[in-house]
Design a protein around this nucleic acid. Structure first.
Lengths: 183, 183
DNA sequence: TTATTTACTTACTAGTATGTAAGTTTGCAG
DNA sequence: CTGCAAACTTACATACTAGTAAGTAAATAA
C-alpha cells in the first residue's frame, strides 16, 4: 500500500471509530510513523481527506452493488447487508452513520460527497428490493424506496446502538430485517 | 431560565446540530454573552456538561414515557414518536444518534449516561409495543424488544438521513413505521 | 549529466480548546 | 453593618490543531 492509501484507510477507520472531529492529522502521522506535514502533502486540508475517503467508500459501494455481479436478488441483498455485518465484526459504525451527526460542521464538498454516497446506496437497495419482489423471493407492503429507507436506517443505527449498549442489538436487528423481507 | 439551564439547553442544541466535538465552550459563552469561565463555573469540564445534558434528556424521556400518562398504547406510541417528529421539525438529530458516532471519544461517565438513556428508551418502547399487541391495536411478528429496536433505529437514522439528503426521508419512514405497527 | 518531479522532513505560525487561579460584584442571613 | 456564598469576570497557562514555507533525498526524464 502506498502512503496515500494507508492514510485513506486509517482516516476512514478513525472516523468510524471516534468521529471526524475527534481525530487529528497527528493521530494519522503517529500511527504511520511519518510527519504531520507528510499527511498534508497528500491531503492539504482535512476537507480534502474527508472527500477522498468518501469517494473511496463510494467506489467500494459501486463494486459491491454493481449490477450483474449476482444473478438473483437474494444474493444481491446478502452482499449489501454483509457490509454492515463486517462493520459490526470490527466494532465500527458505517461511514454514513459516523458522519451524519457532524454534518453541519463539514464544508460543502464533504456534505456533497456524503449525500452522493447515501443517495447511491439507497437507490441501489431499492432496485434490489424491487427486483426481489418481482422474483417473488421478497415481500413487503411499502414502496421499494420506502422499504429501502427502512432497511438502511435499521442497519445504520443498529451499529450505533450496538456500540452504546453492546448486548447483541445488531444481530437481533440484522436477523429480523432478513426474516421480515424474505417472502 | 437560569444561566445554568440556558447552558444546558444550548449545549444540547449544539450537540444535536453540529456534534459534541464540533462545539466549544466559546460557542456557548458567545451566544449567552457571558465569559468562557462562567461556563466552566457551572460545568467545570466538558464531560460534566455532557453528563448533565444526558441526564436532563433522560428525565425528559421519563416524563414523556411515564406509565399511566396515557391510558392506551396507541397514545403512548404517538407520544414516543412525537419526540422524533419534533426533532425533525427543528432540523436536529436526536441526542442518542448525535452522540453515537463519537462514543469512543467520550469519557466513561458520559458513555455510562448515554447507555442509560438508550436502555430506558428501548425498554419503555418495548413495553408500549407489548401492551398494544395485547390490546390488539398493534401487530408485529418480532418480540417486543426486537420490534422496539427496529423502530428506534428507524427513528434515529431517519433524522440523520433527512439531514444528509433532505428529500422527505423522515416523513416517509415515520409514516411507514406507524402504518406497519397499526393492526 | 542535468533538470525536474515525487515524497517526504524540519521548523514554524496562528488560532483555538480546555481548563485554572484569583479577584469582583451582588444579594442575603445573622 | 458584617460576613459569606453564589455567580460571575479578568487574566492566564497549557496543549493541541490545522496548515505553511523551505529544504532534502531519491528516482525519473530529457
Amino acid at each position: 500500500m502506498t502512503t496515500r492509501e494507508e492514510i485513506l484507510v486509517l482516516g476512514e477507520k478513525l472516523i468510524r471509530l471516534k468521529g471526524y472531529n475527534a481525530f487529528s492529522y497527528h493521530d494519522i502521522s503517529a500511527a504511520l510513523d511519518i510527519k504531520n506535514a507528510a499527511v498534508h502533502y497528500h491531503f492539504p486540508k482535512k476537507t480534502d481527506l474527508a472527500v477522498a475517503i468518501l469517494q473511496s467508500c463510494h467506489e467500494r459501494s459501486v463494486k459491491i452493488l454493481e449490477k450483474n455481479k449476482y444473478d438473483n436478488a437474494l444474493d444481491k441483498l446478502k452482499a449489501f447487508l454483509k457490509v454492515y455485518a463486517d462493520s459490526y465484526k470490527h466494532s465500527m459504525v458505517c461511514l454514513v452513520g459516523g458522519m451524519a451527526a457532524e454534518f453541519h460542521s463539514f464544508e460543502a464538498p464533504v456534505q456533497k460527497e456524503l449525500k452522493a454516497v447515501v443517495q447511491y446506496i439507497t437507490e441501489r437497495l431499492a432496485d434490489i428490493l424491487e427486483e426481489g419482489r418481482k422474483e417473488k423471493v421478497f415481500a413487503f407492503k411499502e414502496t421499494p424506496r420506502t422499504k429501502a429507507l427502512l432497511v438502511v436506517t435499521n442497519m445504520i443505527a443498529a451499529l450505533q446502538l450496538e456500540r452504546i449498549m453492546g448486548k447483541k442489538e445488531f444481530t437481533d436487528i440484522y436477523q429480523a430485517v432478513i426474516k421480515d423481507i424474505a417472502a
